[in-house]
Simulated scan of single mutants.
Amino acid sequence: MSVGPIEIEDPRDERVADFLHLTDVRLRRRLEPERGLYLAESEKVIRRALAAGHSPRAFLMSRKWLDDLADLVEQATATRVPVYVAGEDVIREMTGFHLHRGALASMQRPDLPTLEDVLGGARRVIVLEDIVDHTNVGAVFRSAAALGVDGVLVTPRCADPLYRRSIRVSMGTVFQVPWTRTGTWPADVDTLRRAGFTVAAFALEDDSVSLDDLAADPPDRLALVLGAEGDGLGHRTVAASDLVVRIPMAGGVDSLNVAAASAVAMWALRVGDQLSA
């Protein structure tokens, strides 16, 4: 028997524990992987998560969204996934912010594919080394989806692509681009090389080659490595890579935001048959 929407009046109700303190970044970064969940925010993102085959644990929405999301509510209640409904003040106290994007879904965090699975058949991959800003991570994934990148690798200290802000900035494209965490880094540069990839590190080095030159005759399989927002790539990563690349710039500017730099590089080195006209 299906169960209809469940009214929540107490923002500390244990049934909505998945949705508490969403603005506490330090807490959520630890809690969500421990509980095996992530949060999807907004109707579009939730639908993309479901379309990717991810399993919902619970939904939370204000009452005014019940009609607009009626098909999601019906499907959830038919499969006994709880749909919690509360007033806007209760939701704000519960989550820490005003929910104006329709709904939140607590989703079961999927198992990550192996590195070999992500690399198999790929021609273009992006490696994010220790990028800690969730907004930048989400923006890279959105560009990767739009520009035909086959996979994204994130190093062990990189921000979580399934953190709520990363997912929101990516517009849910994090669910469609294959990705995984590297086991050890930069040791996995050798794994990339054994898989047939040329490893290109983006850094300001004296012996770097221009992105224009690389794009003129790119290798068939290419891994683009981008570094943290402040320090850039580690010296060991640069030394282990096959070549170092720089983006030509004017105006006395020596570098771009990592998300912008990744988009420029992905566009310049795109594989043409992966993009529509």
Rank of each mutant, 00 (worst) to 15 (best):
A200D: 01
R47W: 00
V174G: 02
L222M: 10
S208N: 10
D212R: 10
G272E: 15
R101Q: 14
V209K: 13
V149L: 11
F59L: 14
M266N: 00
R194C: 05
R28F: 03
R47A: 12
G120D: 13
W179I: 02
V154S: 08
T182P: 00
E7A: 10
D13A: 12
E116S: 11
V264Q: 01
A216P: 10
D213L: 11
G251S: 10
D273M: 07
L60G: 05
S42Y: 11
P113L: 09
P161Q: 05
G232S: 09
V225F: 02
L27E: 08
P82C: 01
S262G: 12
A103C: 12
R164V: 02
T155C: 04
L204D: 12
V132T: 09
H100C: 07
M61I: 04
V271N: 15
E7R: 09
L22G: 04
A265I: 05
G232W: 06
S55I: 13
S2D: 08
P82A: 03
T79Y: 06
Y38A: 04
R63N: 14
L112P: 02
S276C: 08
H98C: 05
L115N: 05
P156G: 10
D68P: 07
T237I: 10
L243W: 03
P219T: 00
D217A: 12
R28K: 13
R165V: 09
R181P: 01
A260M: 08
T77K: 06
L192W: 02
L233G: 02
T184W: 09
R92P: 01
P33N: 04
V149G: 04
C158G: 04
D130H: 14
M1N: 11
V169I: 14
A195Y: 06
A122Y: 00
V174E: 01
R30C: 05
V154E: 05
D254V: 08
R246V: 09
L112D: 05
L128T: 04
E34D: 11
S2R: 14
V271D: 15
I8D: 09
D212F: 07
L22D: 08
D217Q: 13
A139D: 00
S62F: 05
A240Y: 01
I6M: 11
T198H: 06
V225W: 01
G230D: 15
V225A: 12
Q176F: 07
V264C: 07
V25R: 12
V199F: 09
V83S: 06
T180Y: 00
G4V: 03
M61Y: 04
R92G: 03
L153G: 07
D67P: 11
D188V: 06
R80H: 08
D133W: 01
T155I: 02
F175G: 02
M61E: 03
V137Q: 00
D18Q: 07
G87Y: 01
R109W: 00
A195R: 10
R236A: 15
L104V: 09
H98V: 15
